[in-house]
């Protein structure tokens, strides 16, 4: 019975936390969506993953202090992205022909910046360059530069060492510098 009461009090705590949880999610959702969309290149799937992360955060960790929510949320989201990528890879083994068409179209869009130069804006060039980054470099860069997490926080969110974060981040910066060289910034 004590356990049941404890569960009830956690649920009550969740209800009490709702206004601050709502504010927290509202403050983070757009950046989280962008970060996810960069990783998986699919708007609807990205929105689904952000929703999953929101649900898991609220159901499992809303009782934790507010200061921990950002890290917990991104930790969950990174796991969601990783799982999605794994599943996509497995799906790719069985639907090769279908994916190959998408892949060719994708390459066409992302690998030839000259094609979109005419109507290009700096915004698009930067987005294009970030999309070219390998996933870990991209996520390290976005969590640090866009979300504003420090090295330790990024390492926690990505479940890797601080050294790895530093390496991923610096490689990402070098790559972006090279890709955006010549741009009229």
């Amino acid at each position: 019975m004590v356990k049941i009461s404890l569960t009830a009090s956690i649920e009550l705590g969740t209800l009490n936390q709702q206004p601050s949880l709502n504010s927290f999610l509202k403050s983070i959702e757009k950046r989280a969506y962008k970060i996810t969309e960069f990783a998986i290149h699919d708007r609807d799937e990205a929105l689904d993953l952000v929703q999953n992360a929101m649900i898991k955060l609220v159901r499992s960790y809303s009782g934790h202090p507010e200061s921990a929510w950002t890290l917990l949320f991104y930790r969950i989201l990174q796991n969601e992205i990783r799982d999605w990528k794994r599943k996509a890879r497995v799906r790719g083994l069985f639907t090769f022909a279908e994916d190959q068409v998408d892949w060719v179209e994708d390459k066409g869009l992302h690998s030839h910046p000259d094609r979109i130069m005419e109507q290009d804006s700096l915004n698009q060039r930067i987005h294009w360059a970030i999309r070219q980054l390998p996933l870990r470099q991209q996520q390290a860069f976005l969590l640090r530069n866009f979300e504003g997490l420090d090295v330790q926080q990024t390492a926690t969110a990505m479940s890797c060492s601080e050294g790895s974060v530093k390496t991923h981040y610096s490689r990402a910066v070098i790559f972006l510098r090279e890709q955006l060289a010549g741009e009229d910034l």
Binding site: E11, T14, L15, Q18, L21, N22, L25, K26, E29, K30, Y33, R43, L47, V50, Q51, M54, I55, L57, V58, R59
Partner: peptide, 17 residues
């Protein structure tokens, strides 16, 4: 569209489990 979906996601997440 994305803004609306995010708003819906938030509301869904905050519904009692």
């Amino acid at each position: 569209y994305a803004t609306h979906r995010l708003q819906q996601a938030r509301q869904k997440a905050l519904l009692p489990a």
